[in-house]
Amino acid sequence: MSILADIFSATILFMIPLLLVALGGMFSERSGVVNIALEGIMIIGALCSCLFLRALDDSGFGPAHPQTAMFLAIVVAALTGAVFALLLAFASVNLKADQTIGGTALNMFAPAFAIVLTWAIQGQGQTTILIPTWSRITQETLGVAVKQNFWQAFLFKSFYQTTIWAVFLFVIAAVVLYKTRFGLRLRSCGEHPQAADSVGVNVYRMRYAGVFISGMLGGIGGLAYTLAAGSAFQSTVAGYGFLALAVMIFGNWKPLNILGASLFFALFKILSSYSGSIPFLPKFENIKASEYIYLMLPYIVTMIVLILTSKKSRAPKAEGIPYDKGRR
């Protein structure tokens, strides 16, 4: 039972960054901007929030008010991710540059900048930023005592505030996209900007908003990934930004489908780490380092799903095309 609890809890933990970042990508692409820079945005968000956590740890505020500090760190991740994403918005909206190339530049910039800044702040050779241990939510945090059982293991093995926020943000994202005036206008800009413009919707502003939101969610996702991946930030998010992009496509640019896709992907990813201890999975005993088979699996399965669903897959029609107000 405890293995099951471990698997579920780890799945949720790794699902959160995928979910958040893919939702971020969804906002950007729904507004018409292809956001290949998610990887870089995650790194910047994680970098700044982790540095912020360290600072709070040093100042003593963090250990004293751990969850308040954690909340502030999430805000920092969101804001820095968003500000960084504005570089993409500027390039693709104002300057009408190639969105893929602009995003590639940001992806290259972010990890290098993270290393440079980490060095500059922590001193030479210090390439990791340790995450304070108080960041996790434990039974003590909540002041409850739960018996050692499935639920205890499932809930408190690795429970962070980011998980709670992710649930909130998912609901908010879905509601904003489908139920609000803003969501309607945003989607119209990704599908038919000329139509949106002809009824007085400011396409430029909407695209900025889409990219900005993707930066916020991407930044928080970066922090969530770092919390999931271990005890320290190491100037990388290991390709999760790109995976989130695939999850977004796999989820057909729709919140609920993205939720399913991120769960699916995270589950396959976690299965690989637990492949040895799950009885019914084949063990490939004749093969050395068979964990790689399981590591490959989520990517192969995603690929197969993408091919099978390619007929139904429907990207926002105007994504990737700079909108020029002068040409109608």
């Binding site: 540059a97 940001l106 910039f109």
Partner: peptide, 23 residues
């Protein structure tokens, strides 16, 4: 004195600028 990743920053700035230059 400096970490070598500064080079990557320089290169990324160059690409970002190149994206406009094309345009």
């Amino acid at each position: 004195d400096f970490v070598k990743e500064i080079i990557d920053i320089i290169i990324s700035v160059i690409i970002y600028l190149a994206a406009f230059a094309l345009l």
